[in-house]
Structure formats: structure tokens, C-alpha cells
């Protein structure tokens, strides 16, 4: 598993780690039951503090992506991909509603909005 962190990003390092592991799990790169590297080994490899990787692992566990066994480490939990997809779709719907409301305020037509979306999507 590759993890690339940026020290200059506004996003906290623990979040960067968390998101990249999440992505690896959702894409199937990390299968259910796979052992994650130990907190301490990962800290050393990424050249960051132990407490930062510990926090990333704790957050992953809290959001159900992993589980841990005392003395053994962290493992990828079973993922219900349909549920996750459903949740993400819901977020997209909400975000689009905001876009539509803003467009109406400006008097932007559906046609114009569609063109704008197309432009951005293909970028």
C-alpha cells in the first residue's frame, strides 16, 4: 500500500493517512481481513510521530473501516459497499441541491447549468 503525505497541506496529516487508507479499502486494494502495518512501523516509514498514525488508526476504527485486536494490530473490516455508495450518493444530492438553489438565485437556466457542469466534469 502506498501512502503519500504532504507536510504543506492544510489537511492534517492524520486525515491524509485516514483518507488514503479509506480509498484503498473502498477500491478493494486492501481486502477484508488484511493486516494494516503496525502503528509504529508506519510512523517510522512515513517519518512522522507515532501519535499521528495512532490517531489515524483510531479514526478509521471509529468509522468502521478497520477493527483492532489487542496485541495483534489493525485489520480491514468487512465493508458494505452498497451502503457506502448509498451514503455518498446522498451527499452528492445534497450538494447539488445547493448548486441548484444558487443557480436559481442568479437566474441561471437549466441549460446553462448543464453546460457549466459538463465543462467542469470533462476538465
Amino acid at each position: 500500500m502506498q501512502i503519500i503525505i504532504s507536510n504543506n497541506s492544510k489537511e492534517p496529516i492524520y486525515e491524509q493517512i485516514m483518507k488514503q487508507i479509506q480509498t484503498a479499502i473502498l477500491s478493494g486494494e486492501l481486502a477484508e481481513g488484511t493486516a494494516l502495518p503496525s502503528i509504529r512501523q508506519l510512523a517510522k516509514d512515513l517519518k512522522i510521530s507515532v501519535i499521528t498514525t495512532k490517531r489515524a488508526y483510531e479514526e478509521l476504527e471509529k468509522s468502521g473501516f478497520t477493527y483492532s485486536i489487542v496485541g495483534k494490530g489493525s485489520f480491514v473490516a468487512e465493508q458494505n459497499l452498497d451502503v457506502i455508495r448509498e451514503k455518498k450518493l446522498k451527499v452528492i444530492e445534497e450538494q447539488l441541491s445547493v448548486v441548484i438553489a444558487n443557480s436559481r438565485e442568479l437566474g441561471l437556466s437549466y441549460q446553462e447549468l448543464q453546460e457549466l457542469l459538463k465543462l467542469l466534469y470533462e476538465e
Binding site: 509504529r40 510512523a43 507515532v50
Partner: peptide, 11 residues
């Protein structure tokens, strides 16, 4: 610093 990190692999 790298050596310190290596030392810390042992909890």
C-alpha cells in the same frame, strides 16, 4: 532523528 524513530518501533 531517523534513529530515534527506529528506536520507537519498540513500544
Amino acid at each position: 532523528l531517523d534513529i530515534f524513530q527506529e528506536v520507537m518501533v519498540d513500544e
